[in-house]
Design a protein around this nucleic acid. Sequence first.
DNA 1: AGGTATAGTAAA
DNA 2: TTACTATACCTG
Length: 758
Amino acid sequence: MQPENRKSTEFCFAWQGARASLNLKPDFVAMEAAVTAIRVALPVPLRQHFDYLLPPELEVSIGCRVRVPFGKRELVGIVWQLAVKPDVSEQQLKPVLAVIDQTPVLPALLRQLLSFAADYYHHPLGEVLTAALPALLREGRPLADYLPRAYRLTDSGKAVHLQSFSRSAKQAELWQALTTQALDEATVKSHYSGSALKQLMAKELVESFQTEIAPYHYRGLAEPALQLTADQALAVTAVNQAQGSFRPFLLEGVTGSGKTEVYLQLIPSLLELGQQILVLLPEIGLTPQTLERFSKRFRAPVLVWHSNLSDGERLNCWLQAASGSAAVVIGTRSALFLPFRKLGLIIIDEEHDLSLKQQDGFRYHARDLAIKRAALECCPILLGSATPSLESLYNCQQGRFTKLTLTARASGQAMPQLELVDLKQQVLQYGLAAQSIQQMHQQLKLGKQVMLFLNRRGFAPALSCQDCGWLTECQRCSAFTTYHKHSRQLVCHHCGATRAVPRQCGGCGSTRLAPVGQGTEQLEEHLSVLFPEVPVTRLDRDSTRRKGAFASLLAEIQQPGPRLILGTQMLAKGHHFPFVTLVVIVDVDGALYSADFRAPEQLGQLLTQVAGRAGRGHDKGKVLLQTQHPEHALLQDIMLNGYAAFARSALLERQQTLLPPCQYMALFRAEAHQSELCQQWLQQVASYCQQQPQVQQLGPLLSPLERRAGKYRWQLHLYAAQRPLLHQLLSQVLAEVSQWPLSRKIKWQLDVDALDLN
DNA sequence: AGGTATAGTAAA
DNA sequence: TTACTATACCTG
Ligand SMILES: [Zn+2]
Ligand SMILES: [Zn+2]
């Protein structure tokens, strides 16, 4: 690593894990001693490493796959270190069974990234590896099995004449084609007869051979670039100047300010140099539209990577990244681990989106690890958002990131006007104020579209007994069950349990059960009563469950003409609604008084993102925010000053209350059928952590959702002003935890930089 | 994780 | 007694 580069890395991730220094320090004593072993990373969720003997007849280098015995089974692992002094005695070591690769499947830089991730998130290396390596490579077949093959004539094939195929026109055709040049597998399969090929190979006239995947060849722009605004041009210049060095940028630009065009114009100069570009998106749903814009622009291969790919497609993308034949890869979280041959730039769109952090198992944040990767690769990284996270804004404030701002909408049109609708003075009709309904009518009459945002799917959040007030609850969670009218079920949105709608009250036996509260399914029904002539499109997880449903609903919305569009937060995620001129935010009051310190930030982002859907076409937009609390500081701030100013004051508040991003945090979670066991275990963790008084504790506390799927849930928060302090303590406490018998009786996990405090 | 030895328990 | 299931334990 170059000194300049290392400095920058520590800039963003200033910490030193105890494990890292243990692992990476070369042990010269071991080199001299007779017994040395190799350390292998194995796909098991264990926080230890495993060492093996390398039989003298075998040779292996770091980063190659090996097959090893493990208990009573065999596993494929990756050589992580050579010549280590084993941490168990010589007799306990088993020999490596086979070496699979001659050249590493994981390059050094990627191994460094994975080691870093395992240390930083205090997660077993084996599971980190599992997240990074395509499933097919974990099966242990040689790489050659997956590389493309081509066909050519053998010497005897070259010696024969066309006349020898007089009885088979198909064979003649293929043979003749091969006399001029070798043909790759795909060409032969698509243009020639399979049986002819088989016969020619049986006669040993044709043979197959392995080919290399060649780096891409850039053939220029496929469509002209758009004219940039002054702001956009500045942003492009700034990032271009950072080519070849690690430098993080934050691109803050309101919806419609042309962030994507900035991304697109950063790419050609890198393609000229043969470098690769990684574009990370928070959700699969955003890949199609992004793929379309990128592949339309460049005559170079643009690939996608996400969890819906088959194992084969995944490996293919992985190999193309490794060989340099992929120019641009557009992908979700785990694309971050692709083995690029020469990465020139990382772009993260919607960097504020919580989906960028994995919510189970290995809980990494793709944005944060991407910054680390950019540092290792010595390339710039650009984070884009209309509503940047407080983390990134703080990094700008601290001088770690360079902030680039796009102030105006690229089309020159005005930002939508935001108006609060005070519900206290109003008689509501189906949850809508008279004022909202009147303005909806007005826009629909003009042939415009109206969008309604309601972040609650289903028909109603619960059913209630009219006689005794009993509410339908989930048997296994401390939560009500949502009534879904269409599927005639009560569904628990926390554990997924469903049951038929009861005829009688569970408390008093009354049959007078009625829905309480309103979800999207109910609002849809009411809208078609209020506006019988207007088509309604509902976008939520239920209406888009069917394969292809999402795309067809989006297509519906792209049609001009009056339409009501209603949906959940799905509406906030980067899709274009060209004919929407009015957005009605039906009810977000629940989020105004949440206990989660991140709730205001998330609400601010959500409101701004939803509001941004108004007036992206030619018409000026308007946003109506219905609320019982029009005087609430957050709403006032957002309405009067916009997101940027709101975020500044929110960040100031975090500073004053000593919360992230101004402090570093980690969270222990515990889950068990017996509540006391969780509390007891977390108390043990808390007690141990008291040895470091500079790390503040909060808890053990019951989680906001006390019981989920039959298990009680507790958490313990840890906060520290300095990252190294916190991480050293975590390493120590984890070593301790593995010795406790209680640790095996409950399910526990550690969440570093936890975002979701549920 | 996943395989296995072992303890616990219901039927025959 | 056997047959099956829940649980503790271990992996180099
Ligand atoms: Zn439930
Ligand atoms: Zn009742």
